[in-house]
Computed example of a mutant assay.
Amino acid sequence: MNVFRPCIDLHDGRVKQIVGSSINDNQPSSLHTNFISEKPPAWFAKKYRQDNLHGGHVIKLGKGNDEAALEALSTWPGGLQIGGGINAKNASSWINAGASHVIITSWLFQEGKIETDRLKHLQKKIGKSRLVIDLSCRRRGDDYFVVTDRWQTFTEIKINSETLNNLAKHCDEFLIHGVDVEGLSQGIDETLVKIIANHCPITATYAGGAQSMEDLYRVNKIGQGRVHLTIGSALDIFGGHGVHYNDAVAFNKKQKSSN
C-alpha cells in the first residue's frame, strides 16, 4: 500500500519549496525558490499530526535551520523524520528531540563511496529501526547515481538491486529524491520509481516532480503499492495549484480503509 507522505523543507530557518537542481554553493544566486511560507514549521507539523500523516520528513537545507526543525519535531513527537547534517555525534539528540527517524546522506558517503564502518556504527548506536538512508540521485547516462552535499556532488553509487539490497540490511527505510525533476512539478520520474519498486526490499519514499493527484495513483500502480510519494511544490499549502492537500489526505484514508 502506497500513501502520500508530507514534508517540511527548511532553508534559512523558514519553510520553503526549492528546485533541487538549482542548489549551488558556488553560485547562490542560481537558487530557484518556488515558495516561501509565512507560516512557521509548527503550523505544518500540527496539520500533519491532525491528519495522521506519519512518515513525513523535515529536511534542513544548509545551516540556520536547527531551531525551526526542533519546533516542528516538538509539535509532533514521534511523527516526523529529520534529515540534513545528521551524523553519529548528533543523531541521538535528534531522536531525543522527537524525531521518529534520522535521515543520513552526505556523512555516509566519503570520496564518492559508502563508509560502511560509519553506517554500522550509527546502526548500533540508534538502532536499525530509527535509521533512514537518503539515496537521492541524479541521472547520468542510463544510470542513476546518489548525489550528496545538498545534491551537488555525484558519488559512485548507482541505484540498483545490489545497492538497495545491501543497504537495506542496515536501515528501516529509504528516502529517494529524483533530483533532476525535484521542485519542477512536471511529473514524476517513472523510470526511477520502477527501479525502486522492482529492487527495493524495504519501505521507500520517492519525492520529485509530482504535479497532480494522478501521480499518486501512478506511483501506486508502477510502484506496485510499495513506494510512498512525497508531494511538495504542487501542493496548495505550498502555494501550488496541482494538488489539494485535503485530496491527498483523503487518498491516504481510502488506501488504509481498503487494506
Rank of each mutant, 00 (worst) to 15 (best):
84 G>F: 12
239 G>S: 10
97 A>H: 04
2 N>K: 07
51 D>L: 00
106 S>L: 04
29 S>H: 13
253 K>R: 14
119 L>N: 04
243 V>N: 04
73 L>Y: 03
74 S>N: 10
48 Y>C: 04
231 I>T: 01
67 E>C: 11
146 V>H: 02
5 R>I: 12
181 V>Y: 11
47 K>I: 09
12 D>L: 14
21 S>P: 01
82 I>V: 13
135 L>T: 02
6 P>T: 09
58 V>L: 11
16 K>F: 02
236 D>T: 08
41 P>N: 08
32 H>Q: 15
110 Q>A: 13
188 I>P: 02
78 G>V: 06
162 E>K: 12
26 N>T: 14
49 R>Y: 08
226 R>N: 09
163 T>A: 11
174 F>C: 00
53 L>Y: 00
252 N>S: 13
150 R>S: 13
64 G>Y: 05
195 I>C: 02
28 P>H: 08
27 Q>V: 14
189 D>G: 07
235 L>Y: 06
204 A>N: 09
203 T>P: 06
8 I>H: 03
130 R>Q: 12
246 N>D: 15
255 Q>G: 06
58 V>W: 10
12 D>R: 13
110 Q>W: 02
42 A>Y: 01
26 N>I: 09
21 S>G: 00
200 C>A: 11
258 S>C: 07
115 E>R: 15
119 L>V: 06
57 H>L: 12
111 E>G: 00
65 N>A: 08
60 K>W: 01
10 L>D: 08
223 G>T: 05
60 K>I: 04
21 S>D: 15
186 Q>P: 00
178 G>L: 03
89 K>N: 09
111 E>V: 13
158 K>L: 12
159 I>R: 00
90 N>F: 04
241 H>W: 03
123 Q>P: 05
130 R>D: 01
154 F>R: 00
143 D>S: 13
34 N>G: 03
103 I>M: 05
128 K>A: 04
